[in-house]
Structures are given as structure tokens and as C-alpha cells.
């Protein structure tokens, strides 16, 4: 196995690192926005006491917001660690550092996959809840 990797790899990784760090920053910014929008949505539903708002609906909005904030922060963190590990590889040129960076890259995709599964599950739960609430209200009116 080769002890050193070609200069092309370093060149590509140098430009990738900038984009990955930028994406990580955007994930953190998105997490902050998600936090504010969740607080805004919960406060709106709570203060305006919209006719169709129930306590469960409030909890579901909050749950979805918390899931978004946690996973967006995690994804941002993964990307920052990936960028810093790429930086270590660019500094040392050791293939073991690149392996370590790619391990974090793998963890990013794994976290993104789990986020997608959790998000879809929460959305399905919300849809089931809405359908059940509609059925309950239609039975109440008849």
C-alpha cells in the first residue's frame, strides 16, 4: 500500500474543505433559525389560541422543532470536524489522517440518514394524528 497519496488528492480536498466548512456554518445558522421558528410557532399557537389548536398539536410542533434543531446542529458539527480532519491531513500528508477524516464523513451521512428516518416518522405521526382528530371531530358533529 502507498505511504503517500498524490498531490491531486490534496488539491481537491483543499477546495472541498472550504465548501464543507461553509455548509457546516449554514447548518448551525439553520439550527438557530429552526429554534426561533419553533418558539414562534409554539408561542403563536399558545397565545393566539387558534381554533383548531390542541395541546397535542402544540407538543408535536415543539417535538418536530427540537428534532430539527438537534440534528441540524449535529450535522453542522460533523461537517466542522470533517473540515478540521481534512486540514490535519493537508498539514501532515499522512493517509491515516485522511482515513480519520473519511470516518467523520461517513458519520455525517449516517446522521443525515437517521435524521431523515426520524423526520419522516414524526411527520407520519403528525399526519395520523391530524386524520384521527378529523375523524373524531366529524363523529362529534354527526
Amino acid at each position: 500500500m502507498a505511504d503517500t497519496l498524490s498531490a491531486d488528492i490534496s488539491t481537491v480536498l483543499r477546495s472541498t474543505r472550504a465548501w464543507v466548512r461553509f455548509a457546516g456554518t449554514l447548518f448551525f445558522a439553520s439550527a438557530v433559525l429552526s429554534l426561533f421558528s419553533t418558539i414562534d410557532a409554539v408561542m403563536d399557537q399558545h397565545l393566539l389560541t387558534l381554533p383548531q389548536t390542541s395541546e397535542q398539536e402544540l407538543h408535536m410542533t415543539a417535538a418536530l422543532g427540537v428534532v430539527n434543531v438537534i440534528f441540524e446542529s449535529l450535522l453542522g458539527y460533523c461537517l466542522f470536524v470533517y473540515a478540521s480532519r481534512v486540514g490535519l491531513y493537508l498539514h501532515s500528508g499522512q493517509p491515516s489522517e485522511l482515513e480519520s477524516a473519511l470516518n467523520v464523513n461517513r458519520q455525517y451521512w449516517k446522521t443525515a440518514g437517521i435524521y431523515a428516518v426520524v423526520f419522516i416518522a414524526v411527520m407520519l405521526l403528525m399526519m395520523v394524528y391530524v386524520v384521527m382528530a378529523m375523524l373524531a371531530s366529524s363523529q362529534g358533529t354527526t
Partner: peptide, 13 residues
């Protein structure tokens, strides 16, 4: 060997 990538890197990907 020679112009190849280590097993660890390939395995991570």
C-alpha cells in the same frame, strides 16, 4: 501496492 489507496480509506468510503 504502487499508486494504490490504503484498505482503511477504501473501507471508510
Amino acid at each position: 501496492s504502487g499508486g494504490e489507496v490504503s484498505h482503511g480509506i477504501v473501507d471508510q468510503l
